[in-house]
Write a protein that binds this DNA or RNA. Structure first.
Lengths: 200, 200
DNA sequence: ACATTAACTAGACTGAGTATAAGAATTCGA
DNA sequence: TCGAATTCTTATACTCAGTCTAGTTAATGT
């Protein structure tokens, strides 16, 4: 019988804290919910919250951060071919792979409840920071595959726009929802075709 | 002799506070500079700083905020024609008009000294928020001119990417610098031509 | 039993941002 | 000239996210 854990066992988890936070955000909006509130709801101390999340707004982006990491992993599987057009298709494939791992029942809270939360600068800013990181991952991949830097950047931003649109449609679909990948493919197809034309 | 001002005269201005802030950022980096430091350097109280700027990071973006406002004004001069392709050209023209009003000697501090400032999340986030606002202005304009919403958004993001690239080249040009509009036109031309192809 | 490891906690602190009442400096009008 | 109106400044208290530290707790390993 091999113990798999050394040290004191955790009494909490990111999921518990995230759940507590989302409950409270719905009850009293994001700005009116303090870290103390969240920690108390989850049954831990305020300092413990910061053992799990760097900032308050980070509870929002667990799924997006996972997807971003998964995308980086997917893109690394594609070894450089020196062909920008191939890179575009690889980028599409990687995005769709990541999107397809998000089933119809895993829509992030941030997408479905954004109206109810109260709009604050830090929440918006935390989203934009992640969009910027996503754009950088895509642009770096394209550059690695011999796309000129300015074109790589423009393409990456256009793909970001398509991805944001797709995510919004995904969230809005309600009971008729299917996988994110189909929305994403529809949104990104004109972008990829347009830039492929410019690259050949 | 008609007095033009009623009430107590200001002892400070946005420019004074901005100058004080930039001096201090260079001396000790952005994160290490407090609002107290800035206010003291400018000879006013800390509370007075907030009469001039909403947040610490806003001192960075005076020029960009002006440009964003100027762009909105320019775009409003173009009455709707129902032609997305015309809208693209109007957008380009408006962007270039705003860019040409920034002579070679008005490069924002944020562009030329970004290395020395110390990278913090709030600074990056404040920039991204403005980029997002710029994108929204452009996308709304395109939609007003009958561009489908998803295409408007994608185009706007691609224009943003081009504009960011142009601004960076502008800042990097040093003593050989000319007006921002020439860099912007070079960067944005392939984007406009690409999307015009998709719209016709 | 003790050492090591990992998680939790209380409490103090910092600094951005908010708010308020009072004071200060000007112009206007009776 | 004086009081009212207007505008700007200030000191101060406060909130709260985020940082840090020393000590406690709960587990495993030797």
């Amino acid at each position: 019988m091999a113990p798999t854990h050394r040290g004191r066992p955790p009494t909490s988890s990111r999921e518990m804290l995230q759940d507590a936070a989302f409950e409270l955000f719905l009850e009293k909006s994001y700005p009116k919910t303090t870290i103390d509130n969240i920690a108390q709801r989850a049954g831990v101390s305020r300092a413990t919250f910061f053992n799990y999340f760097p900032t308050k707004s980070d509870v929002f982006w667990v799924e997006l951060d996972e997807a971003l990491e998964a995308l980086s992993v997917e893109l690394r599987q594609h070894s450089p071919t020196g062909s920008p057009a191939h890179a575009l298709e690889a980028l599409r494939a990687s995005l769709l792979t990541v999107a397809s791992s998000m089933g119809a029942d895993r829509v992030p809270f941030a997408l479905t409840q954004s109206d109810l939360l109260g709009n604050t600068g830090d929440l918006q800013a935390s989203a934009l920071t992640r969009f910027s990181a996503l754009t950088a991952v895509m642009a770096n991949f394209l550059e690695l595959h011999r796309t000129p830097p300015a074109t790589a950047r423009t393409t990456a931003y256009a793909c970001l726009a398509a991805a944001v649109s797709a995510a919004q449609q995904w969230a809005d679909a309600g009971t008729t929802r299917h996988g994110l990948d189909s929305y994403l493919n529809a949104a990104i197809d004109p972008v990829i075709r347009g830039f492929r034309g410019a690259l050949t």
